[in-house]
Design a protein around this nucleic acid. Structure first.
Lengths: 113, 113
DNA sequence: TATAAACGCAACCTTTGGGTTGCATTATAT
DNA sequence: ATATAATGCAACCCAAAGGTTGCGTTTATA
């Protein structure tokens, strides 16, 4: 069972669930009521979210409140952010690299430096 | 076919591929050589990455160079960033909310579970 | 106490995901 | 012209994903 945050947020329903409880906790049924699919389907999504730490459940009587552990998204944020500089500064890697490559191949002369 | 960036980066192999070509383009075989699985498996991953715009392919002779379109990750960055304030400021939603809830439901006698 | 609400979860189904082997195609090299 | 490198892709396999129905359990309430 691969249970990482990346996979957890891959499903749009789960992203919606996270969004739904980001502001304040909701019990399982309350979450499920906001979707067309069955309570069991939502339950499974929530379970998966708990398995990767994105959601924590606290029981109150017969209700179980789902709280979002948004700090778990830091892993995703970090991964994405490492590339931000590359895409914002638009290093034109492709053109440079392929230009180089073409030059190298077409002419046996020295590569760029 | 759900082909969105969130799903694309859900797979660790695909994240590795992105990382591998983030700095400079590589042809399909060059990418595949870095993995244990077959070239076809990698080809499929690359295809999926192109289908959601995360990778663009440019052909040079018999080689096809894969370039990462990292700006597509902005969608992920945006989604995650909207929650950063919540998790960094640690609004203690759970405690507040559930404390409230307990107070409302229970009689004045406080008891912690 | 009986009933209903709020679950957890097994059993089952269908589609998708990720992998493989094998072969056809195109471009480069000999 | 022929061999080989780089690749696309069909056909197939198996496990996982996402869904359903149904039922048991625990807790609140009439």
């Amino acid at each position: 069972m691969r249970r990482d945050v990346f996979q957890a947020i891959a499903d749009p329903t789960r992203r919606e669930i996270i969004n739904m409880i980001a502001q304040h906790p909701l019990n399982v049924n309350a979450v499920a009521e906001n979707f067309e699919v069955s309570r069991t389907a939502i339950y499974k999504h929530i379970k998966m979210l708990t398995e990767c730490g994105l959601v924590v459940i606290t029981q109150f009587g017969r209700e179980r409140y789902c709280e979002a552990r948004l700090e778990r998204l830091a892993e995703v944020a970090d991964w994405v952010e490492q590339y931000r500089k590359v895409w914002t500064e638009r290093l034109d890697n492709l053109e440079n690299f392929l230009d180089d490559l073409e030059t190298k191949k077409r002419k046996p002369g020295r590569k760029k430096g």
